[in-house]
Amino acid sequence: MANRIESKLIPALFEELLNERFVQIASIDHETGGPMINALSWVHAKDESVILFAVDKRSRIISNIEKNPLIALNIIANETCYSISGSAHTAGRSSGEVPIELAIVRLAIKEVRDIMFYGAKIVEEPKFDKTYDQEAAEKLDAQVMNDLKKH
């Protein structure tokens, strides 16, 4: 994307967001008015203009977007770093198939920017491991991702 600005996800980025992966979300803290960054993994591109993500229903992210819906999602993919910004709102709750109560958040994309500094590329994307029971983690991840795809 070479520092271009797009109004929706490019095909390669859309593909990256069809599966669980590490992303960061920046929102405005509802109490302090300052920036807040959180890490997420339950994200899903509904289409080129909408990203859904799931967070605990008590997450501070929910209070933040209720007061100020403008957020940015940061993802490292395709050897670069992207900022995906737009307006977010709670689109529902997780179904009974998910054993924890989650809020489903819908991000309507306004802008996608390649924000990598000039003359560089990412040579290794971030990776993470779940630190609790691997079987339980895989089951929960599958339940949440399936639930996201239904919204």
Rank of each mutant, 00 (worst) to 15 (best):
N3T: 12
I5F: 05
E6C: 08
E6H: 15
K8E: 15
P11D: 10
P11R: 03
P11S: 08
P11Y: 09
L13N: 02
E15K: 14
E15F: 05
E16L: 00
E16F: 09
N19V: 12
E20I: 11
R21K: 12
S27A: 13
I28G: 01
D29C: 11
E31Y: 10
E31S: 08
M36F: 11
M36T: 11
A39W: 00
L40D: 01
L40T: 05
L40G: 02
L40W: 03
S41L: 01
S41V: 09
W42S: 11
W42H: 09
V43W: 03
H44M: 05
K46N: 07
D47L: 07
E48W: 00
E48P: 01
L52H: 01
A54L: 05
K57H: 13
R58E: 11
R58C: 00
S59D: 04
I62Q: 00
S63L: 13
S63T: 10
N64C: 03
E66Q: 14
E66R: 09
N68F: 04
N68A: 08
P69T: 04
L70Y: 13
L73Y: 01
I75Y: 04
I76W: 00
A77H: 03
A77N: 01
E79F: 13
T80H: 12
T80E: 07
Y82A: 05
S83Y: 07
S83I: 05
I84V: 14
S87T: 15
A88M: 04
A88C: 13
A88H: 04
H89T: 14
A91D: 06
G92E: 01
G92V: 07
S94L: 02
S95E: 01
E97K: 15
E97H: 08
V98K: 06
V98G: 00
V98I: 09
P99T: 09
I104L: 11
V105P: 01
L107S: 06
A108I: 08
I109Q: 04
V112Y: 03
V112N: 03
R113T: 07
R113L: 11
D114I: 06
I115K: 08
M116F: 00
Y118P: 06
G119P: 08
G119Q: 05
I122W: 00
I122T: 13
V123C: 07
E124S: 13
E124W: 00
E125T: 10
P126H: 04
P126W: 07
K127M: 11
F128Y: 14
D129F: 10
D129Q: 11
D129I: 00
D129A: 12
K130G: 09
K130T: 12
T131W: 09
Y132G: 12
Y132V: 05
Y132S: 09
Q134D: 15
A136R: 12
A136T: 11
E138G: 10
L140H: 06
A142V: 07
V144S: 01
D147V: 11
L148D: 00
K149Y: 04
K150W: 03
H151C: 02
H151F: 15
